[in-house]
Computed example of a mutant assay.
Amino acid sequence: MASILFLQYPKCGTCQKAAKWLKENDINVESRDITKENPTETELAGWIKKSGLPVSKFFNTSGRIYKENNLKEKVKSGSEAELISILSSDGMVVKRPIVVAGDFVLVGFNEEEWQAKLK
């Protein structure tokens, strides 16, 4: 398998669980701290397309920034370009972890889905 990009926030419990799973399953990844290196608009647009998911699935809906800025309403009414711009503005707005591999993107940690795609 080609190189795999693992976007995560080291203090996030789900990201830690996902990182442990990757290590236990001998899956080598290039790890990137989403808070230090925000995904760019170009990256996000490509990942959204590759994932087959709507842009709304890339938002960290339980995060402080999402709640404080009432992004729920913006996500419902904003254009894809507007929403990608918001996502690229701060890594904490982005749902994590994200795995970007050759022909697929996984958003969030679902062990069964990861097992099916990464093993």
Rank of each mutant, 00 (worst) to 15 (best):
L83C: 06
P10D: 03
W21M: 02
S79H: 05
S77R: 07
K67V: 06
S85F: 00
V29M: 03
E24Y: 05
L87D: 00
L53V: 00
G63H: 03
M1L: 13
S3H: 14
W114Q: 04
E24K: 06
S77T: 14
I98Q: 15
K72I: 11
G78T: 08
T42G: 00
V29I: 06
K72G: 13
E113G: 06
F6P: 07
N70R: 10
K17P: 04
E82N: 10
K17I: 15
A81W: 02
V75F: 02
A18C: 06
S62Y: 04
A116H: 08
V107S: 14
C12W: 10
A45K: 13
K76Q: 13
A18R: 00
D33H: 02
E41Y: 04
G102C: 01
K20R: 05
I98R: 14
K74L: 12
N69F: 04
V99L: 15
D90N: 15
I48C: 10
V55F: 08
V100F: 05
E37Q: 14
K17E: 12
Q8Y: 14
K49P: 09
I84Q: 10
P54T: 09
N70Y: 08
P10A: 04
L7K: 07
P54L: 04
L118Y: 09
E68N: 14
W21Y: 13
I65W: 02
F104I: 00
P54F: 04
N110L: 11
K49C: 06
K117P: 01
D26R: 02
K117E: 04
L7Y: 15
T35G: 02
V99R: 04
S77F: 04
S56K: 12
V105Q: 09
N69W: 02
W21N: 07
P97H: 10
S56N: 05
L22A: 11
K17Q: 14
K117H: 10
F109S: 10
I65M: 09
N110Y: 14
F104A: 00
L44T: 09
